[in-house]
Design a protein around this nucleic acid. Sequence first.
DNA 1: ACGATGATGAAC
DNA 2: TTCATCATCGTA
Length: 175
Amino acid sequence: MRKILKPDFFNHPTLIVAQNLLGKFLVRKIGNKEIASMITEVEAYDGFNDKASHASRGRTLRNEVMFGEAGRWYVYLIYGMYWMLNIVTGPKDYPAAILIRGVADAKSPGKLTKYFQINKSLNGKIASKTTGLWIEDRGVKVEAKNILKTKRIGVYYAGPYWSRRRYRFLIEIPQ
DNA sequence: ACGATGATGAAC
DNA sequence: TTCATCATCGTA
């Protein structure tokens, strides 16, 4: 089974979509080569009030994709070196996105973008075959009891309430 | 524990 | 125009 996820998949509450993404496959096409790896770790950034989210300080040039329609990529540079890959969720004008933090073959957000050759050029593009980066359902079922929930990484600046929310979701993968 | 490294946004 | 900050990572 190979089903490409359409924008509608992402137009739902961010915390739900985040968990639904575990076990799905991130797929990249470069030239005639296709690479794919299962998503194993994500983080939700949800709404105007989330102090850990770029959107908490309002709409800017960088974060405006987060305010757009679900199913688009939000890609930005962090620490001058690493591209972060997010997928926009929820309705238009509601800022939310899911950071893809890990796949089976690349276990951290900066490493996976390097592995998939992802940079600013994908920012704002729709996750689809035509843009060369998309997500597929390949029939892997993830049980709710197998999803680990922890606080998000690297967001202490967001204060005790928002930094402690368990918006990070991951699954264990057999080696 | 820390430095690399540069875009971003807010202050001036 | 300047400046602190930052959804990280590899080396120590």
